[in-house]
Write a protein that binds this DNA or RNA. Structure first.
Lengths: 338, 338
DNA sequence: TTGAAAGCGCTACCAT
DNA sequence: ATGGTAGCGCTTTCAA
């Protein structure tokens, strides 16, 4: 390892100018003579000089970093969102600190604190503890304090916390889902997966029921079973579902992963889709395009979602006007599974 | 937004001690009287004081941050690796800066530089430009310079760059793959997907051929077609494959995603798997467990991979001995698709 | 046990 | 156009 750190002073000396001039050349701002600039650039080149963003940040009180906390980056929903969010962030020359919490509130809290002391300029918390009805007050208070210092964006629709919210339109999601199914002629509809202690999940079930009634369709208690958000959950829940007396005509997953699990179960039991049983998901993850059969779903616009998150951060940072609550539109993607 | 930043000086004044004492309390190191400590803690609490990691880092010349660059975090291979890598990193109190390059060498370079000026203590580049035979010299030189300053870990087996390498054992991978297929009684074997300009992909094909010969199995030029690493590639390539005169008995994907695409194509054309055609992948991503049928594969140990990366970084940072080249073992997971 | 002070690398204000 | 200098918030000697 090379020992000494090269600083602007080393560069300045080599170029025969002052540190100020080097700083000016780097930031490319104001008047530096062609000649001086030339020499500085040469010196930078020669020494492989890299400016120290910590020193700069300390001085300027800006880090150009956004902190992002997600429960599980292996989940395509979260990775897609991160992916799109970073697209917009780097356009604005912001880096993104990604923290995975492994769905552990302890780690979530720890990440949050570390991010704060790393001086992130804004914080994004996707899902996580806030999604849970059991979310601790102390945690919410800590977030509230943070939100007073820097822009805080969450993706949960909660009244308990005053901050920027960018959320999926779960109501519209369920409306589109049920309407599509009705249109396809399905009458008996199941909804599997989720967790009633998780707000968005609870909401989807609630709205699902509402639209089932409005459309005069039917569901049953035995057809609405929760038990997780993964493909594995989907498989397990389908098994349960197919133990019930009467069978539904179509099974919806609380999200696409659960629906993909339902697909797998159906295949393993030689059911044809959609002939024997329809399957539908929500979220619009890419896997739904390439499953067999391709999965009908109500899709989030990940690009818009990520962009909106960063845009509201930028607005807040620049004291521009912005909506404290943004709802991301969802739309029907009818494919082969219904 | 609250304006003023609280510093240790504010805390010190409130507690009636000096900044040094506050610093000592925070770092929890040396002798501070019970009484003073108590007052400092109260003051910290009262002001919601958060230490500024930039100032600390500037002073200490450490950031406790590892930079990680991946081509596409939506790819389960990369997200799994990141996930596991962070597990080990946070154990050591390191944060991880994740950068997605969107498979764009320009962005990769830019991320690299930004990470350097953010003073990351180590850099991990997973895949990316280095995987390509066409990788620019200038880029390699820049990496070489970086590797002299901080520990640099790459996942490509290249001679062009002297740094820490943690790589998959592609030879063993292909040995296990072909042997398994031979054992299952397959004779005619196809390998689809990949890109001959990508080193690991090229290697896998090379070793594939080697083991095909050693095991006296057969393949054909028409059965070894490249064209990408995604599920979509797999679908497309299967289509091509099934245009060739003679059909193979089993199709291997250069990775699991391609194999998953093959599965989809097979379903759509009413082929039974493995009865009509076998399918096999490499990498061992989680999706292979939940596909229908579940996918036989040669799996990487992501946890070991991530751990090894961080461990070698830590060793390098502490000037401990470590291997400059670590090979991650791969093992056969025989499931239902063969 | 405690405090004063220097300095990490940078920027920006104030002179010249 | 250029340079000197103060100071961002912290740690760490050195003295007391």
């Amino acid at each position: 390892m090379d020992k000494k750190n090269i600083t602007i002073y080393d560069v300045a000396k080599e170029a025969g100018v002052s540190a100020s001039t080097v700083s000016r050349v780097i930031s490319g701002n104001v008047g530096v003579s062609k000649d001086a600039e030339e020499r500085v650039r040469k010196a930078i080149e020669k020494y492989h000089f890299v400016p120290n963003a910590m020193a700069k940040g300390l001085k300027e009180k800006r880090s150009k970093v956004i902190g992002v906390i997600v429960p599980d980056i292996k989940n395509p929903y979260f990775s897609s969102l991160f992916y799109e969010l970073q697209v917009r962030a780097i356009q604005e020359d912001f880096m993104v600190f990604l923290c995975n919490t492994y769905e552990d509130p302890q780690i979530e809290l720890r990440m949050l604190r570390t991010l704060m002391n790393k001086q992130v300029e804004a914080m994004v918390i996707i899902g996580g503890a806030l999604d849970y009805k059991s979310c601790e007050n102390a945690y919410i208070n800590e977030l509230q304090t943070i939100s007073k210092k820097i822009p805080l964006v969450i993706t949960t629709h909660t009244m308990l916390l005053d901050c920027i919210k960018v959320v999926n339109d779960d109501k519209k999601c369920m409306e589109l889902l049920v309407t599509h199914l009705a249109q396809k002629g399905y009458q008996k509809i199941a909804l599997i997966g989720g967790n009633n202690n998780v707000v968005p999940s609870y909401d989807r079930r609630r709205f699902f029921l509402q639209y089932i009634e409005e459309n005069r369709l039917t569901t049953q208690k035995e057809w609405m079973i929760d038990g997780g958000f993964s493909i594995e959950s989907g498989i397990k829940l389908m098994q349960e579902l197919f133990h019930s007396k009467e069978k539904p005509e179509v099974v919806c997953g609380i999200n696409d992963l659960v629906a993909l699990g339902a697909l797998k179960y159906a295949h393993e039991h030689n059911m044809r889709i959609p002939e024997d049983i329809g399957v539908m998901g929500c979220d619009g993850i890419a896997l739904g395009e390439t499953s067999y059969p391709s999965l009908s779903t109500i899709a989030t616009d990940y690009s818009a979602f990520g962009e909106e998150i960063v845009n509201s951060i930028l607005s807040a940072l620049h004291n521009k006007a912005y909506k404290r609550l943004m709802t991301i539109d969802m739309k029907l993607i009818a494919r082969r599974s219904t």
